[in-house]
């Protein structure tokens, strides 16, 4: 088990290096720069700034310096907020995004799995058709329509939840549901397909022949097998949630990392962009590792090596 995890970590180091390198060169190859943009800054100051951050050096020296600081886990100063480092920005923004993402994932699972199971059990029945239509409708409405819609109804009309900002649990509800809905819908669909498949298995018939009741049959015998694909979906889902949160954070004015990323991209804040991308890459690799470990835990057929 430990060995498996260590090996995976070792394998992901080159990936992280590759991402660091790619983002670095893409950014440098792009026209323009953090201090060369539209803003009318006097040339001397511009040159000064360039020198201060080493942007006047040859590319490979900059690259070398960047890698060295990466080894110290130092993502460098932010160009946009000179008084802050990228590390500080991440430490500040990430917990917010993390909380939002986790809540959304929870929403997705809590709605998606039961809906999928119900649809499968009532296969071709009314409830199946209903859930699956809702599911398709859910996939077809973009979150940035859903978000404002929720705000409109639940905040501005019903006054149930605050429409924006961050900090209190009530403020988490709407963004988490908005972000989680597409995934709940997807998970419902996946769960249904897999559940239908599992329910046709011989071992389900064996359980029935033992006199096992319907509830126990689903819960003890069918769910585990049906959830395995859902679990492996969670890896890419986290990646997707992360990107999705960019929009949600914008709609609900949440001070999360996604918003920093977009803002820093627009203002060509190289270090922050690189730092966030790199951070997210590490996060996703970690998330995938967790998912794989969970998968092995759920599937006894896979033995630890």
């Amino acid at each position: 088990m430990i060995k498996f995890i260590l090996r995976r970590i070792a394998l992901s180091l080159p990936v992280i290096f590759l991402i660091a390198t790619t983002t670095f060169f893409i950014l440098r190859l792009a026209p323009g720069g953090p201090f060369l943009s539209e803003r009318a800054i006097p040339p001397e100051i511009q040159a000064n700034l360039q020198a201060k951050y080493g942007l006047d050096q040859p590319l490979w020296i900059q690259y070398g310096r960047y890698l060295r600081s990466l080894l110290r886990l130092d993502l460098g100063p932010s160009y946009r907020y000179p008084e802050r480092t990228v590390n500080e920005i991440i430490v500040e923004g990430f917990p917010v995004s993390f909380e939002l993402g986790l809540a959304a994932l929870l929403v997705a699972l809590l709605i998606g799995v039961p809906a999928g199971v119900v649809a499968a059990v009532k296969h071709r029945g009314f409830l199946d058709r209903l859930t699956m239509s809702v599911v398709l409708a859910g996939i077809s409405v973009p979150t940035f329509v859903l978000g404002p819609l929720f705000i409109f109804f639940f905040s501005l009309t019903l006054y149930w939840f605050p429409p924006a900002l961050w900090g209190s649990p009530e403020q988490l509800v709407l963004p988490a549901i908005t972000l989680g809905t597409p995934y709940s819908v997807y998970i419902a669909r996946l769960t249904r397909t897999e559940m239908l498949e599992v329910l046709q298995q011989d071992y389900i018939r064996t359980a029935r022949a033992k006199g096992v009741g319907e509830f126990r049959l689903l819960w003890r015998h069918a769910l585990n097998g049906a959830l395995l694909p859902v679990v492996s979906f969670l890896g890419p889902a986290v990646a997707d949630l992360v990107t999705g949160s960019i929009v949600i954070e914008k709609i609900f004015a949440i001070p999360g990392l996604g918003r920093y990323f977009v803002e820093s991209a627009f203002s060509r804040d190289y270090t922050t962009v690189m730092g966030t991308v790199l951070f997210y890459a590490v996060l996703l690799i970690a998330a995938n590792l967790v998912v794989d470990v969970l998968y092995k835990f759920l599937d006894p057929r896979i033995e630890y090596r």
Partner: peptide, 17 residues
Amino acid sequence: IGMVFQDPMTSLNPFLS
């Protein structure tokens, strides 16, 4: 009534001990 099925490879639940 107890029942023994034909194929022991698929008739046992792989996820339960």
